[in-house]
Amino acid sequence: MFHAQSPADLPDLEQVRAMTGLQFMESIRDGRMSAPPIAKVLNYALDVVEDGRVVFRGTPGFEVTNPLGTVHGGWYGTLLDSCMACAVMTKIPAGATYTTLEYKINITRGIPLGTEIFAEGNVQHVGRSTGVASGEIRDAAGKLYATGSTTCIIMPLPKAG
């Protein structure tokens, strides 16, 4: 998987317009299109893509801690926003896109630094204009660290240029 290093590395909108959301997410997972730069910055990657389900794998390091040395809530939020919204993306038709309208997270416990986690997003509903999904962050043993929910707006993909 490669990450966009500059705007020139981002996916071509005309190419994306011809793909369903599921095809788009699969192309990122398979390395045919670049992963978003934020994934590299926060040390997470797309791991599983299925119709209505997406899993990111990540490991928080010292660079994502708050002043007390624990994993910052923004790291949890970013991973949950990513997995939930990308799960919605898997249900979107060609020529459309989404953006998060709102999301909520509940952190149930701190993630120990260096612990590999899995952030899973699952769709509850996708219609013509909105998508709703839930998410969880767990470790390999299944221990729950956070839950979330999101509502996304679905809209036409803007014209290039």
Rank of each mutant, 00 (worst) to 15 (best):
M1P: 08
F2R: 15
Q5V: 01
S6P: 02
P7H: 13
P7K: 14
L10D: 04
L10C: 08
P11G: 09
P11A: 10
E14S: 09
V16L: 08
V16Y: 10
R17H: 09
A18I: 03
A18S: 15
T20P: 03
T20R: 06
G21T: 06
G21K: 04
L22N: 06
Q23N: 09
E26L: 13
S27C: 14
S27R: 15
S27K: 15
S27T: 15
S27D: 14
I28L: 13
R29K: 11
R29P: 01
D30M: 09
G31C: 05
R32I: 04
S34F: 02
A35K: 06
A35N: 11
P36W: 07
P36Q: 07
P37S: 08
K40P: 00
L42A: 11
L42Q: 13
A45F: 12
A45M: 12
D47R: 14
V48W: 10
V48C: 10
V49P: 01
V49Q: 01
E50N: 09
D51M: 02
D51L: 03
V54E: 05
V54H: 11
V55G: 07
G58L: 09
T59A: 00
G61P: 01
E63Q: 09
E63V: 04
V64R: 12
N66A: 02
G69W: 10
G69T: 11
T70S: 06
V71N: 03
H72K: 04
G74D: 00
G74T: 04
Y76L: 03
Y76F: 12
Y76C: 02
T78R: 10
D81R: 12
D81P: 10
S82M: 11
M84H: 04
A85K: 10
A85P: 05
A85N: 09
V88I: 12
I92V: 15
I92D: 02
G95Q: 12
G95Y: 09
T97Q: 01
Y98M: 14
Y98V: 07
Y98N: 15
T100K: 13
E102Y: 03
E102D: 11
K104E: 06
N106Q: 07
T108V: 14
R109H: 04
I111E: 09
P112T: 08
L113S: 05
L113T: 04
L113K: 03
L113E: 11
G114D: 04
G114F: 00
T115G: 00
A119C: 13
E120T: 14
E120M: 10
G121S: 05
V123A: 00
V123H: 02
G127Y: 08
R128L: 06
S134L: 04
G135N: 05
G135F: 01
I137A: 06
I137Q: 12
A141C: 03
L144F: 08
Y145F: 15
A146P: 04
T147F: 02
T150A: 11
I153K: 11
I154Q: 06
I154D: 02
M155R: 05
L157D: 08
L157Q: 08
P158M: 03
G161R: 07
